[in-house]
């Protein structure tokens, strides 16, 4: 079990190369793949989540841990059987047309990934056609729309309307500096969060 503890600790420390090395060693000692995944990689992210909540870990450290976990998972991919890892849900996310801002939206994407969600990050300045196409191609559980400018906020409203009209069966969440909970309710979105941690909590709640 020392190997598992090592994997867990190196994920928490964000030591991505060490994680892969220890995963290899664990496989050599014939530890089950599901044990490595669940008790090593995923358990580490649970610890990271609570350390972030208490303020002990900062966001960049969480992202490093998530990257380390992903690398470990990547290495194990060919060996994974059905049911070894379960995605907690699929999220399509993007910044609406006319808006080139992306640091907040990317942060939400990264935090969702760190929390075990599969994220399709469309990027910035995305037309409604692109959102619709991505929704059809990926069948996401959640669609996230982002805007930073007050001038592009109306595009969020329009996107929500068109996604609903097209019958897309996904929860729609909205965010960005000018957006607030009242606006989200008014335009018929399913949810709003003020920051990346809030976004993760929101998605978790919507999919529970």
């Amino acid at each position: 079990m020392n190997n598992i503890l090592g994997i867990k600790n190196s994920v928490i420390a964000g030591e991505d190369e060490l994680v892969v090395e220890l995963v290899k060693q664990a496989l050599d000692t014939e530890i089950a793949v599901s044990t490595i995944v669940n008790e090593g990689l995923i358990e580490a992210m649970n610890v990271v989540g609570s350390k972030m909540a208490t303020g002990e870990m900062y966001v960049p450290e969480v992202l490093m841990s998530a990257a380390a976990m992903q690398l470990g998972l990547e290495y194990l991919k060919p060996l994974l059987k059905e049911g070894d890892v379960t995605s907690r849900g699929k999220v399509v996310i993007g910044t609406v047309q006319g808006d080139l801002h992306d640091i907040g939206k990317n942060l939400v994407a990264m935090m969702l990934e760190s929390s075990g969600y599969e994220v399709i990050n469309l990027g910035v300045d995305q037309s409604i056609e692109n959102f619709l196409q991505a929704a059809k191609d990926n069948q996401p559980d959640v669609i996230g729309l982002s805007a930073l400018l007050t001038t592009t906020m109306p595009n969020i409203r329009e996107n929500v309307r068109l996604l609903r009209e097209a019958g897309i069966n996904a929860k729609i969440i909205v965010g960005g500096a000018p957006v607030n909970a009242d606006f989200a309710t008014e335009i018929g979105a399913d949810g709003y969060a003020a920051d990346s941690a809030g976004a993760v909590a929101l998605v978790k709640q919507l999919l529970s």
């Binding site: 960049p60 490093m64 990317n106």
Partner: peptide, 16 residues
């Protein structure tokens, strides 16, 4: 260009 510095080792090392 267009990337971000959040998940860089230097960020983690120096942010505090």
């Amino acid at each position: 260009p267009g990337g971000n510095y959040l998940a860089q080792r230097q960020t983690v090392k120096k942010m505090r």
